[in-house]
Design a protein around this nucleic acid. Sequence first.
DNA 1: TCCTTTTAGTTTACCGTTATACCAATAATA
DNA 2: TATTATTGGTATAACGGTAAACTAAAAGGA
Lengths: 337, 337
Amino acid sequence: MASIVEIAKMAKVSKMTVSNVIHKKYEKVSKETRERIERILVETNYTPNLFARNLKSNSSKIILFTIPQTIENDPYKNTAFNNPFYGELINSIEFNLRKSGYYLMFRFVSDEEILSNLVLNWNVDGVIILGAVKKEIRTVFKDINVPVVFIDTYADLEESDSIVTEDEQGGFIATNHLIRRGKRKIGVVVSSIKEIGVASKRYDGYRRALDENNIPFDDKWLFEGFPSFEFGALIAQRIAKEKDAFDALFVYSDVMAIGVIKGLKDHGLRVPQDISVIGFDGLYIGDLCEPRLTTIKQDITAKGYMAVDLLVRKLDGRSLAPEHLTLPVKLIEKESV
Amino acid sequence: MASIVEIAKMAKVSKMTVSNVIHKKYEKVSKETRERIERILVETNYTPNLFARNLKSNSSKIILFTIPQTIENDPYKNTAFNNPFYGELINSIEFNLRKSGYYLMFRFVSDEEILSNLVLNWNVDGVIILGAVKKEIRTVFKDINVPVVFIDTYADLEESDSIVTEDEQGGFIATNHLIRRGKRKIGVVVSSIKEIGVASKRYDGYRRALDENNIPFDDKWLFEGFPSFEFGALIAQRIAKEKDAFDALFVYSDVMAIGVIKGLKDHGLRVPQDISVIGFDGLYIGDLCEPRLTTIKQDITAKGYMAVDLLVRKLDGRSLAPEHLTLPVKLIEKESV
DNA sequence: TCCTTTTAGTTTACCGTTATACCAATAATA
DNA sequence: TATTATTGGTATAACGGTAAACTAAAAGGA
């Protein structure tokens, strides 16, 4: 825990000389002095105090990655991480930040907290936000001049940087695939489509596929709810009761889709013989269920990479205008259709 | 981004007076001045610069949660987070840290990095480490006087604080359950048992159950390998080839167990009719596979809670002597046995 | 009235680092 | 020899916040 002053004393020089050695400003230091100081730095295992450095430089090398959500009072109730999507994304973000010399601070936050508590407090250099965020919050980031990359948000993004997947197209491909397989009574299971997020875009694609194939949409085909495995199973229960009303389902996420399949089977329906199910994400857990889940795959690790890359380019000043990147999707045929 | 000095100027007082208002040292400030300053604080949306504060106080309120591991060069290869165990744990840790006023910094680290890069650099107030850690690393934490809580480490813990599950007992219960169901040829699938981690303890429990039931252990019953879904499936392939050699398997983790079941079924064996499988962890994904996985459940959220609680007690000085906590396990009977 | 408290502040110094300005001694040039 | 440039540093101030010591003015007590 030696400070630069103590190193300077040991080397009998001023602390500025030590600082110059640390920063490799060798033209300021003679060879002998430099080597003497370097030896002492190694011996004492010196590491700079980043608080001091950050205070001076007014930058932290910390990037906040956050998932805004209603914060539960009970950690057992917060099931976000049950979805491997989050794990894969945070893994990729941490990996790429580390590679670029940044540190990851992770936190679930409520909308209010986002500003008061973290961005300002910590002088985080940048922020990556996953999921739908209210407009007020988004505009505030502009005021405080911290680069932000939004992942999977759609509303009013002209002036923000964002990364999304081909959600609409994915919904379209999924639904089209069902239609090409002869399905005509296609239900859709999503989280809320009122929020302008991935769910509503995937739903839009679903509707477009119906339209283009002249299949009239029936209000009863829409099932909305909390995007969890359990809720998927719950919805399946309702669907199983009117089994003849559907010959296929487009479910907006794999986790939900697996729940749906589980629920359908528990209520005596066979997948895909009685009813086909297609998911969205391409998670490995799709291979765990039986039948294996046909799905629309997105590259989550690439998403994390792109988010970090975009943010780092902002921080380096290599990207000035807002960018909106869209990652491709791909139909993965397994056995549930 | 107003600093305390600017606030002071606006209020026409010294910055110390502002500081006193912020810290609610009201006996130092008259009612009028106080209210004037408070108004300005609100108007300017003042938040203290934590770098400055931390520099002065030499504490950061940051807790590092880290999973030591060989850092892959390719984020696609890092599959740690595919195991929902990690997600549930980090969720619980973040939740409880936030509740106690701490911030979570997460990072995968190599052993070397642990010290040089983070603990010293960031003046993190405490560290939570998951998984087996070499002795050298552990001893260093003592030198630098940062409280550390180890999760799921066993080796040489006398002087460290640690939290584990009843791993040995869990392995015993699992194996005993198989034996009580009439199984006699019980294979065991673990990650490396050379490292002194949870895998070796669970294996110890397995061996004890065999011993106590006078079942001689056969070297061919042991399968070691990388603890992933894929590797579980790979091992199952080998097991399927000598199908008559086994009537049951104890797999040290659910993720691996699900892979094993998948692999067994892909090679024509029926679970549990031909061979029974029991897992360990109690993850929700155990319910996704068919048959649903019988397993030994541990409470991961409780584990995170205990880790944070113990660490915070260390930081508050409310726990001086090293503590070693062991969380209970419970047999959950489903359909794979 | 004089002395002591109390009130309501202010001043100073420091946390560890770094940018900037400065300086002394030596080397190079005219 | 006098002047200028280079080398190898040092001294100072600042980042924003806080603990501790200090002080001026008002209030209280004898």
